[in-house]
């Protein structure tokens, strides 16, 4: 099997236009050539007019508020009225707060445990669906849960798991007279994790399948001729050729998992009528309750401190992930 492995990607390579990939054998180390061609010079001139407007918008709408949040996190503030500068006190306080550590732990559980489950399942489904008849329908069916608002799952949980709900009604004829307390406070978070696996797997399966579909069939024919087993085919063809898709999915999941909020809010908290039990809080819920619980004086300082920490967590994890997932890009 001969795959055409190109040189490692340099940082500058990301800016290349897709068209340049097809251009014959590439010269190595183009990025470091001193003068640059006239095209390079043109490109340099266009950087500010092209990137500038987007950059300004992005700065005003995202970076400035983010820096504003950092500024607020150094204060004791009820959202309006006087602000009192307290330095890093808010950070110290939330690190001492058992509840923040618990919420943060839950966020990590979602990120790693749910993430692992999702990717194992998504990969397995991808392999099964690739050869399956009617795979388009199957793909739509497993993608469907992702379209449904998390609120619906929160409300459904009541119908399904209430003491007089569907599950217990189905169990009763089977002689189960003392079913588990499905919606007890300690069970809510595991239920949320299962729900997330069910709803998110289809989404990532779809993305991974797009990557797998891209693999030209002659590689599989090559495998068949070489007598490769299914595992070898996975190991030497499918994984290397979908690695960049996989990496992107991992980053997407990292970012979205740290922000998971609404499903926790509606699963516990009586569909939003109250605050969910603390056992199921994530860092995002912790942030929200501090600022907007509506039951006590808002603590914007502590809320933004926890939001800033979440942002820091995402940034560090994404950098680490990109590093861990970095492989020689395989082009085909």
């Amino acid at each position: 099997m001969t795959l055409d492995v190109k040189e490692p990607r340099t940082d500058g390579a990301a800016a290349q236009s897709p068209g340049s990939r097809k251009a014959g054998p590439r010269k190595p180390q183009r990025g470091s050539r001193p003068g640059g061609s006239s095209i390079d010079a043109q490109r340099k001139k266009l950087l500010v007019p092209f990137v500038g407007p987007a950059f300004v918008l992005y700065t005003v709408l995202f970076i400035v508020p983010a820096l504003g949040a950092v500024w607020i996190s150094l204060h004791k503030w009820a959202g309006s009225g006087p602000m009192k500068f307290v330095g890093l006190d808010n950070y110290g306080r939330i690190f001492r707060d058992q509840l923040f550590l618990l919420s943060f732990g839950n966020t990590l559980l979602l990120l790693f445990v749910v993430g692992t489950a999702i990717f194992v399942l998504a990969f397995a489904l991808t392999l099964v669906l690739r050869d399956m008849a009617g795979k388009k329908i199957a793909r739509n069916v497993i993608f469907f849960p992702h379209l449904i608002n998390a609120l619906v799952f929160g409300v459904l949980a009541g119908f399904i798991f209430n003491p007089g709900g569907m599950v217990n009604s189905l169990l009763a004829p089977l002689g189960v007279t003392d079913p588990p307390k499905w919606l007890a406070q300690d069970n809510i978070f595991p239920l949320i994790m299962v729900t997330l696996v069910c709803t998110t797997t289809g989404y990532f399966t779809t993305i991974l399948m797009a990557g797998v579909d891209r693999i030209p069939p002659y590689y599989y024919e090559d495998c068949a001729l070489a007598g490769a087993s299914a595992f070898q085919r996975l190991r030497y063809v499918i994984l290397p050729l979908t690695w960049d898709v996989f990496g992107t999915c991992a980053v997407l999941w990292t970012i979205s998992s740290v922000k998971i909020f609404e499903i926790v809010w509606v699963f516990g908290g009586s569909s939003g009528a109250g605050v969910p039990p603390t056992q199921s809080w994530t860092a995002a819920v912790y942030t929200y309750v501090n600022a907007f619980s509506g039951q006590s004086t808002p603590a914007y300082g502590a809320a933004t401190a926890s939001a800033v920490l979440s942002l820091a967590l995402i940034s560090v994890l994404v950098v680490l992930l990109r590093r861990a997932m970095r492989r020689d890009a395989v082009e085909f």
Binding site: P34, K44, L47, I63, V64, L67, G68
Partner: peptide, 25 residues
Amino acid sequence: GKTARHLRPLAALLGAALALSTTAC
């Protein structure tokens, strides 16, 4: 060296944004 030249105008924009954010708050 080329990357640094590219980043210079961006850094200037970021600087302006920072100044803006502190006055806004």
